[in-house]
Design a protein around this nucleic acid. Sequence first.
DNA 1: TTCTGATTTAAACAAATGATTAAAACAGAA
DNA 2: TTCTGTTTTAATCATTTGTTTAAATCAGAA
Lengths: 204, 204
Amino acid sequence: MKTAKTKKSEESAEQKIIEAARKLFTEKSFDAVKTRDIANEAGINLALLNYYFRSKEKLFEIVMQENMQKFFQSIVGIINDEETTIREKVELLVNRYIDMLLNSPELPIFVMSNIKSSTRTQFQGRFRDSFLMKQVQKAIKKGKMPDMNPVNFMLNVVSLTIFPFIGKPMIKNSHNMDDKQFLELIEERRTLVPKWIDAMMKVK
Amino acid sequence: MKTAKTKKSEESAEQKIIEAARKLFTEKSFDAVKTRDIANEAGINLALLNYYFRSKEKLFEIVMQENMQKFFQSIVGIINDEETTIREKVELLVNRYIDMLLNSPELPIFVMSNIKSSTRTQFQGRFRDSFLMKQVQKAIKKGKMPDMNPVNFMLNVVSLTIFPFIGKPMIKNSHNMDDKQFLELIEERRTLVPKWIDAMMKVK
DNA sequence: TTCTGATTTAAACAAATGATTAAAACAGAA
DNA sequence: TTCTGTTTTAATCATTTGTTTAAATCAGAA
């Protein structure tokens, strides 16, 4: 029996392959990553890739699945909490996303490049049917928020939080910034994005 | 002499190759696009690609250059106009970008995926040194805008305008939307983004 | 220890891929 | 027309790439 090893140095080959694949597929495109790159990164024999995962495509699908999970999962809990206000949810969302993206800055580009309209995810309609959407609709109906497509509210939160990570190289380039300055920018957003969203909700 | 053909049906092979390359490289990654794909799309013999452009890399660089140009060029004029107010510039930027992105929705992902921190573009520091940045700094100093990193102001405009196109498949998927609904969403943003930015400028 | 099935390895394969070649077709000048 | 340089073509090449094979190694059971 070889399953369920705990020590990192004695990880199963299967695990090592998945980790290498995740790293490489997340930072480069499917075609840019070669099976030999994955084998090298994992420190295993090339043939093991097909032995355990049948094909590069199958392996990619697993990474895809994991990354989608990571990207959406964290927020599902927040947007469906029936105890918190819209304002509180926004604050939680912004902080949760910024924390996650500081650790995995390449995740958004991966997700955005690889979701095709055709892709069927487990997150179909998860936003539309969320409690947050209902709260926003109610707020609009009550006149506590300007009349707008509620999707645009959600889209604003997501845009203001995620885009800076997608645009990082562009921002650093066009503003001649270093990594430290970029981080300061993001930390300022952690505080300000919720306030900005708040202000937007008062537009008439 | 064969240069400078005008009729579209009688385009030079060189032009046909560039157009095919632009189309394919803009919608798929460098490695996903094969030289034979480009040749087929252009309807020319494979060897002409190397005859005119030396290599796939050189051809890609040309497309890269063109796309960067297209993406940044349109706004340079707007942000350096000394006659318009901040508010007017925001409105112009949002409209200009939405118009462009409705025609070339894949452009943002191309740009974001291919600018590396190392990439040297002709747009180095173009934002930082723009007249708009000076206006924003002055407005902050005068207390007409809340104290913040002026880059974050620019970043908000860009995030709210561009992200929806980057996230289009995700949005359509997670909200079960069709193309028509997505377009309506965007058209609403054309009007609302400037107002939202306006409201954000009043946060204290 | 021997046996058995799972794991790992080096080598090989076939297809795909970027690039080159040499000959053919073409267009305009003389 | 003939000549000259340019453009286009089909064929070919050398590598790269995803995958397979068959043998070797290993781990645990009997």
